[in-house]
């Protein structure tokens, strides 16, 4: 319940400021341009579900970027502005603070996802896709955004400087999205299996992109999200002993 108090204020702060709008607008523009160029603009004819898969491929990446860019300031900003005193002298626990920050970021990631909805709807102009595929794909996007938001909140707690949090969070997100996938292909067993397991996009989003719900991927991303939030909460707790 206390986490909702934090989430409500943070969400209002995102919506009242201009930076969240700039980030979302810029990423929506990029997402739209790439969607037009690579998903809609293919020279050969393709099935509608292939175009939708391409859309989710792009949408997942831009949603992760949205999450990292928005959350890099979540706790670092509180430290820079001195308002972390308000949080840490309240009865809201460190865990609730972290969850509240994550929920607010999730609200914005969801908003981003909703604002991309017109792109898959364009597919209906010349084709037809399953509504279930659409919903499962968006579930994957939200899961990826959730994990990236938790990663961003963790980095924001760790570094106390939003630029450092953004850079490290971005690098980790790139590793989990692309680098781990590529590394897994070029390393030998058993390391390739371990690395491949950390490749969120390749291992855990592709099924959603194709319209299949993978419970193992839901559990994996849920666990990773919980781990990042627990680590962020632990960092806040240890600050009382620094």
């Amino acid at each position: 319940m206390n986490a909702l108090i934090i989430a409500k204020r943070d969400l209002a702060s995102y919506l009242q400021g201009y930076s969240a709008y700039i980030i979302i607008a810029a990423l929506l523009l990029g997402n739209g341009v790439f969607f037009h160029a690579f998903a809609l603009g293919a020279e050969s004819a393709r099935y509608s579900h292939e175009v939708l898969e391409n859309f989710f491929y792009l949408c997942w990446g831009f949603s992760v970027a949205t999450a990292v860019l928005l959350t890099m300031r979540s706790l670092a900003d509180e430290h820079a502005l001195g308002t972390e005193v308000l949080l840490r002298t309240s009865i809201v626990s460190d865990g609730e603070i972290v969850v509240g920050k994550w929920l607010a970021a999730m609200g914005m990631v969801t908003l981003y996802a909703v604002l991309t909805l017109h792109m898959p709807l364009l597919i209906f102009v010349n084709g037809k896709v399953s509504l279930a595929h659409l919903m499962v794909g968006y579930l994957g996007v939200i899961l990826g955004g959730g994990t990236a938001s938790a990663l961003g909140v963790f980095c924001s707690a760790l570094f106390r400087n939003q630029l450092a949090a953004g850079i490290i969070g971005g690098l980790l997100a790139i590793y989990m999205s692309v680098i781990a996938w590529m590394l897994a292909d070029t390393t030998n067993p058993p390391f390739n299996d371990v690395i491949a397991y950390t490749a969120i996009f390749n291992q855990h989003f592709v099924p959603f992109m194709e319209g299949r719900i993978a419970m193992s991927s839901i559990v994996y991303q849920g666990s990773l999200t919980a781990l990042f939030l627990l680590l962020a909460s632990y960092i806040l707790h240890t600050r009382r002993w620094e």
Binding site: R9, A12, S13, Q16, G17, L81, G82, T83, E84, V85, L86
Partner: peptide, 10 residues
């Protein structure tokens, strides 16, 4: 605190 902790957009 010496510098009041405030959410200035509120």
């Amino acid at each position: 605190t010496e510098s009041p902790p405030l959410y200035t957009e509120m």
